[in-house]
Design a protein around this nucleic acid. Structure first.
Lengths: 337, 337
DNA sequence: ATTCAATTTGGAATCGATTCCAATATTAGA
DNA sequence: TCTAATATTGGAATCGATTCCAAATTGAAT
């Protein structure tokens, strides 16, 4: 470790120019003679000089830093994609991310915000770990804030969420395109729960059916509790029907996991006897299930990216952006016999 | 958004004291009369003053920030625990984390380091996403760096890794304590692979057997390719043995997932016919498998925490810390009939 | 060669904190 | 009440960059 870093004064002295000139070179100011620029450049490189961030941000009042407040990161594997998308977007614009997990605790949330204001972050990305409504305290109004995978009921903040309806529609359409007409849907929770996903996915399912002129049959629809076991339960009910479904759109991959269990136990094989499509693209489940599960991916990376780009664009309209959910094709869908 | 933040001068003027006094109050300097302190405190609160981080770190030459470089965060769900552990430990000491994902790309790694040096972070935590050897460029020597879930073959850096041997031993002992003597082991990869986990877990398995005076039977051991399918393959081989195992220690939860499939297909039930224990505690798999999988947890949170605490302790010995892996009891282990 | 405009450069002032020294206020002891 | 020691305070100097203005240089036009 070297004793002390060089300062801009050291460089100016070594290059026999004024500090202003060095600063201009550092900031690619065009008002510098080419020969001077090259000379200063070379001195900078020779000495391995690195400007001090603290000094720079004190003077420019810009921290080149964005705060990322995550709620309960540790509870979901998606978090990494969200952070990665945000980080990549930030990096592209020369900024870094200060990450705090607020653990879904309102007090911590407030303290996190304070820490970030102190550090003069240029904006805040607030990310929930699954699609939900969120009520941020007013204190967040004092700094540009973008919500990710959540939304403010009063539209006080711009937000970006997955297009659940489009995703569910795509899932259902995919089954339809494979010739299926009797398509069951296992909702990923009670439809009257506060979280919007089950309702919106159900909505997409119905839209796809209706677009294809297939009547929605309520007996083909089952509300699970969101866990694998209750998904299995639903699957059993549906295949016991007089006119059972030939394909199942599961509200989440977790449910699909339970469904696989139930179907295999009944001696049905996937996708020969019945096709399955999931939702969420929980890699660890979907890719390692046997056969691998086709599913709709949540666009976490893209949402993280969008949030940063929007934040740095300087726009101030509180739009609610929908990001579409792509299909991830794997092995669980077959043609209707 | 208010037009401009207050500075320490504003507070000094408003409180009719010198800036030095305000600074002393801010930093809990005992050399301030109680009455003065209270008065200044109240003005600070009334105006909602927040000190500028940039100014402070310029003057003190401390950024109160730690760099967290992650390799390929997006490829594993563990990352969040690592980050959480580090963040919590940092937060306890008033520091925040600057997070960059280096995507397992040496060039990006170097650029990440540079970005962090520029920002004068007080140290760096370099986290791999699974237990492995890692060769950091020399440039990391210029700043205190701690390795997490990886280690430097030349011991140039302190590091913290999971105690795989202890974990595997615990897994095997748990089965032994349930009365099992014929315990199979499906290694989570070829033993001659560069990554150390398969070897170490195998080692722990053998130690537990030997401690219990059970002879190691090579026919009960099977090297998988690390994926669920090949785990299933192994399981089939083992149960076809003349004297088949009554319990299986799977090198990872992913393998256990394949094993579940294979066993169910053979009409065996868990844990009545055969007990299973995994390794890794991949929540999404382990908790939702049916029956839920007992497994050994990797101490990611604790490793993250340890790294920060060690970094901030100022120690400079390049120790290699082992963190023990606890058992997570679920439903897949039963008493030997 | 001279004038004037356009480039290029140097360096003082500035950002907002901490720190240190000197000045002032307080207290204890006689 | 006075003195000496101690406690408290004010404010200039400092950290290392950027920015702006004035000065110096260059180049073009006559």
């Amino acid at each position: 470790m070297d004793s002390r870093r060089y300062t801009i004064q050291d460089i100016a002295r070594a290059a026999k120019v004024g500090v202003g000139t060095v600063s201009r070179v550092l900031n690619d100011d065009p008002n510098v003679k080419d020969s001077t620029r090259e000379h200063v450049q070379s001195v900078i490189e020779r000495l391995g000089y690195q400007p001090s961030f603290a000094a720079r941000s004190l003077r420019t009042q810009k921290s080149q830093t964005i705060g990322f407040i995550a709620d309960a990161v540790a509870t979901t594997p998606y978090a990494v994609h969200l952070i990665k998308g945000a980080q990549d977007a930030a990096w592209n614009q020369g900024k870094l991310l200060l990450v705090i997990d607020a653990d879904n605790d309102p007090k911590l949330r407030e303290r996190a915000l304070e820490s970030m204001l102190e550090r003069e972050v240029e904006g805040i990305v607030y990310a929930a770990m699954f699609h939900q409504e969120v009520n941020l305290p007013d204190s967040f109004q004092q700094i540009p804030t973008v919500l990710v995978d959540c939304f403010d009921p009063h539209s006080h903040f711009p937000s970006v969420v997955p297009d659940e309806v489009q995703g569910a529609k795509l899932a259902t359409q995919t089954l339809i395109r494979h010739g299926h007409k009797r398509i069951g849907h296992i909702a990923n929770d009670r439809l009257d729960i506060v979280y919007p996903a089950p309702r919106l996915r159900f909505e997409g399912y119905k839209q796809a059916l209706s677009d294809a002129h297939i009547d929605f049959d309520p007996t083909l629809m089952c509300e699970s509790d969101g866990n694998a076991l209750s998904g299995a339960q639903c699957a059993l009910e549906l295949i016991a029907l007089a006119d059972p479904p030939t394909a199942l759109f599961c509200g989440t991959d977790r449910i699909a996991m339970g469904v696989y269990d139930a179907l295999k136990e009944q001696g049905l094989s996937i996708p020969e006897d019945i096709s399955i499509i999931g939702f969420d693209n929980q890699e660890i489940i979907a890719a390692y299930l046997n056969p691998a599960l086709s599913t709709i991916a949540l666009p976490h990376y893209e949402m993280g990216q969008w949030a940063i780009d929007y934040l740095l664009s300087g726009s101030t309209t509180n739009i609610q952006e929908l990001v579409s959910c792509p299909l991830v094709k794997r092995a669980s869908i077959g043609l209707k016999a």
